[in-house]
């Protein structure tokens, strides 16, 4: 009796499964190899750079003039420009993006949401060079100078930051909306049954419950703003100097990299290596922002 059925449960070879598993593994390995490769490509030239320029001069120096005869490699001017444009972008994008997300998730009829959300996401598909021209031609030249009569030149970190803010609104709005919509309806009903109105429910129950997704959305916005190149290269100007007020022009780290990469530095020269040192700093800043945000999310996160 027993022997008659023996072997019925033994596995059969499944060649297709093996191939698929190999393909997936390959995809994972390639991704990791590329990441490590980029990191190495940044690190190796940077080592050359820092063997000639002390790291403290680089990090705390206030004059950025890598191409002049009396070369100076203080990166702070680039950092201030990046901080200004990013800060300005967030000042506009966070309230507008979150506002749009709340409207879509908590207030809008589902039919409205179905139409509005894709339209919002189209904003994310506009090439950044178009945003850049919009910033320099319209916001800077027309709005800030002609209409508002502000004391500013041809470029400003304000115009670049503002337009960058517009660019990241869809990122923040769309991901936050996903986070808000993912909060179970049972919480909305529970809140309503206690006599809370929609705003109270949204602010006190739904928002805290969705906070990890919302923070993730903002961080993604920050990362995009820090890394954005075309808008700042076009609208913020190309002069590397400490930026004290938002109407001034300034060169961000990314704008410098774009400019230097297009230039005629000899490969392996010190000028050439600056590119990678700035790139590495950019990478570290983004990494730190990410780590901080993950820590914040872990601390305030309230699973539902």
């Amino acid at each position: 009796m027993t022997t008659q059925f023996a072997g019925q449960l033994e596995g059969r070879p499944r060649p297709f499964d093996v191939v698929v598993r190999l393909l997936f593994r390959l995809a994972a390995v390639i991704t990791i190899v590329i990441t490590v490769g980029i990191l190495l490509a940044l690190l190796l030239p940077s080592i050359g750079f820092f063997s000639e320029v002390p790291i403290t001069d680089f990090l705390f120096g206030t004059r950025w003039a890598p191409r002049f005869a009396d070369a100076s490699f203080g990166v702070l001017p680039l950092v201030t420009a990046t901080l200004w444009t990013t800060f300005i972008a967030l000042v506009f994008a966070v309230p507008l993006g979150l506002g749009a997300a709340v409207l879509l998730s908590e207030y809008a009829h589902w039919r409205v949401r179905k139409v509005l959300k894709p339209i919002l996401e189209v904003l994310a598909g506009i090439p950044t060079v178009v945003y850049g021209y919009f910033a320099v031609q319209f916001i800077q030249a027309t709005v800030l100078k002609d209409w508002l009569q502000l004391p500013t030149g041809s470029f400003s970190v304000l115009a670049a930051g503002f337009v960058m803010g517009i660019m990241i609104i869809p990122t923040i709005a769309s991901i936050s909306e996903d986070a808000l919509s993912a909060v179970p309806n049972a919480l909305r009903q529970g809140s309503a049954a206690l006599g809370a109105n929609r705003m109270q429910t949204t602010v006190r129950v739904i928002f805290p419950a969705a906070v990890s997704g919302i923070v993730a959305a903002i961080i993604l916005g920050v990362s995009r703003a820090v890394g954005e190149t075309m808008i700042v290269a076009l609208a913020a100007g190309q002069q590397a100097r400490l930026v004290a007020n938002p109407l001034e022009a300034g060169q961000t780290m990314t704008a410098f990299i774009a400019q230097a990469a297009l230039g005629d530095s000899v490969v392996g020269s010190l000028q050439y290596d600056t590119l990678f040192a700035v790139g590495l700093l950019l990478f570290v800043i983004t990494l730190v922002v990410n780590i901080i945000s993950i820590t914040i999310v872990r601390r305030v996160r309230k699973a539902y």
């Binding site: 179970p184 529970g190 805290p208 539902y304």
Partner: peptide, 8 residues
């Protein structure tokens, strides 16, 4: 409600 729905 049917399913307990405490706030987080």
């Amino acid at each position: 409600f049917q399913k307990p729905n405490p706030f987080p």
